[in-house]
Design a protein around this nucleic acid. Structure first.
Lengths: 107, 107
DNA sequence: CAGTTATTTTAATAATTGTTTAATAATTTA
DNA sequence: TAAATTATTAAACAATTATTAAAATAACTG
């Protein structure tokens, strides 16, 4: 994953409503949840939800599928994991699991 | 960790220069790196660096200590891990490690 | 103390972002 | 086909954010 993509993904999550949407979808699993149901649960207007869905979608963090007149949204777990991996890559120069190394790797 | 704090942390990282700063510091480990050295490595003006340090600091993602006339910045690994945990909390309703569950948890 | 190096602050400007309202699109039901 | 439901789009406005240049602060050196 490249820096620009990660910035886009982080920007998408750096907003209260979108973070709440994403977290609900992470809990839901691959089947996802209907747009209207999310809107009701989060007390957000449909138009505003659509705006935020678009942002999350563009960032690759969620996917959607139409089912009748409902649109189901689900978290993209692969994208999430890649983003998290990017942040922790080569943590403490790869020395030790919990980053408990007292000595740094930079001068 | 609360939603507002996580939003602040994600906002802080959702910017190319700050993401680059943070990643360098993650690799460096607890000892960190001097402000000027980071500025040179990333080809960013000192004033601009200070602005971004402030943002990352306010978000709790980095810490700093003075050493002579240098200021060393280091990643706050605890804060980073809390933020990552917040995103994956109750992933797929806690059923299975890799979120490979084909059936969702929401209706 | 004067000079140098390292970093931060301030002020100004340019660009991006979130919310609301109203209108539009797609799908189902009668 | 017409009405109802679900969701998206477009336009407008308010608010926030990033960058630059100049000035200020802090710490060391001779």
């Amino acid at each position: 994953m490249e820096s620009a993509q990660v910035v886009t993904a982080l920007s998408a999550l750096a907003q209260p409503t979108r973070l709440a949407i994403f977290r609900l979808l992470v809990v839901c699993g691959p089947e996802g949840m209907a747009a209207g149901q999310l809107a009701e649960k989060l007390q957000v207007s449909p138009a505003n939800m659509s705006f935020h869905f678009k942002t999350l979608n563009h960032a690759g963090l969620i996917v959607n599928r139409q089912d009748g007149r409902f649109v189901y949204y689900a978290a993209n777990f692969a994208a999430m994991n890649e983003m998290l991996a990017y942040l922790t890559e080569n943590c403490c120069a790869g020395s030790g699991d919990g980053c408990d190394v007292p000595v740094g790797k930079c001068g």
